[in-house]
Design a protein around this nucleic acid. Structure first.
Lengths: 342, 342
DNA sequence: CTGAAAGCGCTTACAG
DNA sequence: CTGAAAGCGCTTACAG
């Protein structure tokens, strides 16, 4: 059974391919094609089970109605939720989404951009890795709009970005811990040069300074990026069991670290929040169900996805318009979810 | 900046488009093109930043090197992990994956198949909904191989499927509970006609019968498919707090139900495993970290993804071969992960 | 060894 | 109101 093409329909309906094309694209009325022909063509098309070949259409029109989405890792719950929200939102605009994971590898990210570009996606939503700004500018130069999500390049305001307000979110969390009387607040973060994490760390230090507290190096643990689960866990265990530091609270700067933290706390049998208060950036089902429940700064994932799509759609409409306004990253507010761990 | 095409390169290198095409496709040697021309073409292509248009290539060759993956919901951790494993495995064969979610809606599943078909994917990996077998057979008739994952159609052996051995997995879990001395074993499942769930339920009853236990209706709770989170939780709460049933263990047949179960148990302050043993089909980070840790029957998700891809690749090679052998579904063994809840 | 030409399935000016 | 034809960017028999 071969796929049926427009010319098969034309032959069977006794009209030209142009006529069929006009009917299939709802341009029949504009082209003043007779009611009778329209109906005949539609009937034949349905009968033969016609499905337009989008490859051919894309080749001809230069538009594929497809968004390329590049995330760090689709199996991570944050990105999976983000991807779903982008897929659902894009559908409203009649766009499809093709997604893929970088595993936070620069080279892989480049390959993916390359692959999506070859498939002629109309625009991109990207969770960038480091050093990707040149590749992204090249896309923009080819008139392919790009919107960053979750991360951004501070020195490149011409690349729009949608993300949570990291600085504000961590500040809020820190103030909350401070208000509750905690003074020896430890921080667990991941080693990276990316600006979104630097913003989070900066908020931690700034809040401490504002309260006249000297940041204590021993309270900050930076997990190397490529450490496997085991060694990362070891780092956290070390921090939490170190004597002489008197930690009374710990702030995990990512979801993944928070989960490791829970494991460490469980292993060390630390009583939360009596011996140690726990706060995490980014929510997770586990935090809601763990005993005690873990307080978090929650990112508005759905809203990030929706805004990313609508920003991209805006750009897609203005394609070729060089004077398109430059924006600072769009920062959405995070929620402080108070639970039992603080 | 326009994209550069094969003819731009041909012009600049002073050769024909055919020559460029042969060089780009590593057929230069076979066509005995001179070393010098090859080098000139490659140099020009690199210089101009040439990226082949896959739409055009796909249109011409009829192959897109793309797999369409349809799952229930990409934001669910089971499917997110499965999708990642399929993406990684497909990459080894130099195939890309386009994924999308049905939300378990028959109509949406049909639309997605339609969409992927219009984009000319070479083959499909599908988590089917009910009543999808006809649509799938149509794909097969069009010579597009399909492999089902996670679910299957027992009456359609001609559609290959890769899934966990549901019957064996639940049987193993039940025997384990029985061995541990539990006799009043409750079951929480989801309402569906799909065979994979029926297999799980059948295993539950069979193990009970084998031990001469009359299945007690009051011990089985079937959560209606479209119930929202709240009402599903209510169902579970009701089951666990019902008096006069003396439940001593509960077996949740899906990940999602197990998480609800944890919530219910937490709310009711039931002591696990002293007052109630808990077992769940399908693992989840939560089960590993909850206190007490929850024992599970773990699906070999990675292996399912890998087998699905390799089965599909096999079919892709034999495309057009009508006599391709019919297989029963490939059932992979689940692990019993003993933790503290039983 | 290399080029000219057909054709994949569409859309869209252009002509009548 | 409808059709013939060009062209999107490729691949691939065919010819020389």
């Amino acid at each position: 059974m071969k796929k049926v093409s427009i010319s098969d329909i034309a032959r069977k309906a006794g009209v030209s391919v142009s006529t069929v094309s006009f009917v299939m694209n709802d341009k029949a009325v504009k082209m003043r094609i007779s009611r009778e022909v329209i109906e005949r063509v539609e009937h034949v098309a349905r009968e033969m089970g016609y499905r337009p070949n989008q490859l051919a259409r894309g080749l001809r029109t230069g538009k594929t109605k497809t968004i390329g989405l590049i995330v760090e890792n689709i199996s991570n719950s944050f990105f999976a939720t983000l991807a779903k929200s982008i897929e659902d939102e894009a559908k409203k605009y009649d766009y499809k989404v093709v997604y893929c994971s970088t595993d936070n590898d620069e080279e892989k990210a480049r390959e993916l951009i390359n692959m999506l570009s070859q498939r002629q996606v109309d625009g991109y939503i990207i969770t960038p890795t480091l050093n990707l700004s040149e590749d992204i500018r090249r896309l923009q130069a080819e008139n392919k709009p790009v919107v960053l999500v979750d991360r951004y390049f501070p020195q490149h305001e011409e690349i729009p970005a949608v993300l949570v307000d990291n600085y504000e979110g961590v500040s809020r969390g820190m103030e909350y811990l401070y208000d509750k009387g905690y003074r020896k607040i430890a921080l667990v973060t991941i080693e990276t040069e990316m600006a979104h994490m630097k913003d989070r760390i900066r908020a931690y230090s700034d809040v401490l300074s504002r309260h006249g507290v000297q940041p204590d190096e021993r309270l900050v643990r930076i997990v190397p990026y490529n450490s496997d689960r085991e060694s990362a866990l070891k780092e956290v265990l070390q921090l939490l069991s170190a004597s002489g530091t008197d930690i009374d609270a710990v702030f995990f700067l990512t979801n993944y670290l928070g989960v490791l933290g829970i494991e460490a706390i469980k292993k060390l049998q630390i009583k939360v929040p009596d011996q140690l208060a726990v706060l995490c950036f980014d929510d997770n089902d586990i935090f809601r169900l763990y005993t005690p429940t873990i307080s978090v700064i929650r990112q508005p994932i759905e809203a990030i996805g929706q805004q990313a799509v609508s920003t991209l759609m805006e750009r897609l409409k203005h394609t070729g318009d060089d004077a398109y306004p430059v924006h600072a990253p769009l920062r959405l507010e995070a929620d402080l979810v108070k639970r039992e761990s603080v």
